[in-house]
Design a protein around this nucleic acid. Structure first.
Lengths: 246, 246
DNA sequence: ACAAATTCGAGAGCACTGCTCTTGACTTGC
DNA sequence: GCAAGTCAAGAGCAGTGCTCTCGAATTTGT
């Protein structure tokens, strides 16, 4: 029933208050966390649009209208869950990548870490990368935590490039000037010295990764390469080569 | 209001009845098509779970309960729409591929045709390849039309292989025996002479394609390679090389 | 310490959803 | 022409997100 020690900061003002000063604030923080926990639990069972405010309130023994004092709308609850999910996935991928010496190993580990987290938390993953919920518009608060995951992948490629270990196995097609321009815009922020060719390959690998996980979660591999463990591993190896980390 | 001349066969018995014999059957077929049209229209505006039987009935000037005489449940309506969408996408991809001489050109055209259809019918596309609707289980009627699209892609690769034009640009990693076994199962049905290595590459390209389209539809390219036309074209060229069609 | 201001839970209620059942009118086949 | 089958309509059930009001509890200002 009660857990989740690190989600207090998602509510109230963003000033770093020392602790819960009054009993009211303490109760509010606990209830906010309890609501999110219960919502996360329901999310894991039925998916995003199975999430019912009334059911959450019912399970918590309160009346549905009382819940609106903590989350102004269903979308706000979803936003809180999305931010938590981005951070949880970011933790998982960072943790999977950490401890590996070479960029290549970190890249590999990040791929497998992403898939493992997605399979273990499929509904939360769908919340992040699945079909967008109609009418829901992600607020800006989500973009920062959303950046953590790509940062791990692009970081591995960047480190490999700086170490002079990045050699794509074949020369790709020419890139249009427009595409080069787009890629330069990204590159200047994340890895200023990376060539556009490598960045484009990393981007393709990045998309491939999410295509794989999405297909597996959506059951599109049924009757083909399901279970997909072997195929996923093979694909990761191909991508590692393709990017030039092999 | 009224259109869609080729959807009559989705309702009633599957025997090929010569025409609409009685006035009743004629009216029923027309109303069934009108319901699907209106539902498709609502689907295009609000997405899958924005589809409301009551709203469809309201728009058609009938009462909601009357609609259940044509579709026993909301899921049955969705199933009909899914089958139509699979066929529409199959038509689009087949039409895009047709008329091109070489397998390579057909492959390319199929990729661009798929994306074009997805962008023009994004909610229908999400219905097919997006996050699965919770509680909805696709019946077996959907698997046959779902096969048409992959058939075009695998067919292009198969033809290229038979013509001796398939040369992957680099040697990939070893495949596990389990993966080989899975791939053999698919290969024997679709392209009995295709090597596992090529089939695996085609599968990867296939997944990549849906990853690309899914990312673009989900807005995941925002602030990076959006608009994604150039990046998509470049990715298709890379995939064409990767599979060995270059 | 007491009053004012704020916050909170509970309840009623609105408009909406998918779906079921019954009723009465209509069309079909014999 | 009449029984059988088919249909649209309506009422109703259980559920949803959300709004509003009303006392009670708590925090805050003096």
């Amino acid at each position: 029933m009660l857990s989740n020690l690190c989600t207090d900061l998602a509510d109230g003002t963003l000033s770093g208050m020392p602790a819960h000063r009054t009993a009211r604030e303490r109760a509010r923080a606990e209830l906010t966390a309890a609501i999110k926990d219960e919502a996360r639990s329901q999310l894991g069972k039925q998916g995003a649009d199975g999430l019912s405010l009334r059911a959450v309130a019912r399970e918590l023994g309160m009346v549905s209208s009382a819940l609106y004092r903590y989350f102004p709308s269903r979308d706000d609850l979803l936003t809180a869950l999305i931010i938590d999910a981005y951070n949880a996935l970011g933790d998982a991928v960072e943790k999977a990548a950490a401890g590996h010496e070479t960029p290549r190993e970190r890249w590999r580990a990040a791929c497998h870490g992403l898939r493992a987290w997605a399979l273990a938390n499929r509904h939360e993953y769908s919340l992040l990368y699945g079909t967008p919920i109609p009418g829901y518009r992600a607020p800006l608060d989500t973009v920062t935590p959303a950046t953590r995951v790509p940062a791990v992948f692009i970081g591995a490629v960047r480190d490999a490039w700086r170490a002079g270990e990045t050699k794509p196995p074949f020369e790709g097609p020419e890139m249009s000037p427009e595409l080069r321009e787009q890629l330069r815009g990204i590159r200047d922020q994340l890895a200023p010295d990376l060539p556009e060719e490598i960045l484009a390959r990393a981007f393709i690998a990045w998309v491939q990764l999410f295509g794989m996980v999405g297909f597996e979660l959506g059951g599109q591999f049924a009757n083909t390469v399901d279970p997909a463990d072997e195929f996923f591993t093979h694909t990761v190896e191909q991508l590692t080569l393709f990017v030039g980390l092999g």
